[in-house]
Amino acid sequence: MRTNGPLALIFHTIFVVVMLAPILVVCLVAFTPEGYLSLPTTSFSLRWFRAIANYPEFVHAFWVSLGLGALSSLVAVLFAVPAALAIARYSFRGRDTLAALFLSPLMIPHVVLGIAFLRFFTAIGIGGSFAGLLVAHVVVVFPFALRLTLAAATGMDRSIEMAAVSLGAGDWTLFRRVTLPLILPGVISGWALAFIQSFDDLTMTVFLATPGTETLPVRMFLYIQDNIDPLVTSVSASVIAITMTALILLDRFYGLDRVLAGKNDPGR
């Protein structure tokens, strides 16, 4: 394998700097000791992180996001595991259509989904409720949970299950003792990826959230629409820190390349 020349490395360096710059600048500004947007030059201060506590909207929105993310990804996984097992191992009529339907939220612009859910929930009278938000998030993160579970179930050696059956395992024992443990890494990664998707979603949620059910991205977005000050940078920095932690854990647990491979390709 040939190695990269100096030109390639210069390109690479600039590329990486540009990719990181916006994220770094947010994190740096968050530590400014000043009352306005500025890069901290002489000293770092946590005053804007402390200031978050004085804005209950942000704190509340954070808890909403966390609860919504955890719950919607959990529900999505509960729906996705049996569906993934069925799609992975049975060749039945309508299977491809079903798989396409389940992955379709990846293809539909989130703005359209937001509008559709807003219209639907208003019509059936649960507009602005947490329940509506939850159901919407379950549908949107479902493809992520499904894909990773599907990959795990497809990659599994079916004769392992046959072996368990031949040794006398019934359906439920088979699932609990053999199938689930084997697909568990995929299921957990699917859950984690679904959580991050839910936690980060703005475009769809902005249509559905009301002051009581605003998620953190929605709150941040609405805040930025009015004015940009160091407070929103410290909130962003906290979000980045949380995501990074989740990422590192995910990488250790499952391998980030495999997770991201599941995120690619909304087109198919």
């Binding site: 990719m19 916006p22 980060d200 703005l202 941040m220 930025i224 390349d257 991201l260």
Partner: peptide, 25 residues
Amino acid sequence: SFFLLVILGPLLISVVARTLGWALL
């Protein structure tokens, strides 16, 4: 794998936060 993480990682970071970074820049 390090640079892959650096370049692909932002995919999972809030779009609001990333865009805010550009607004600051």
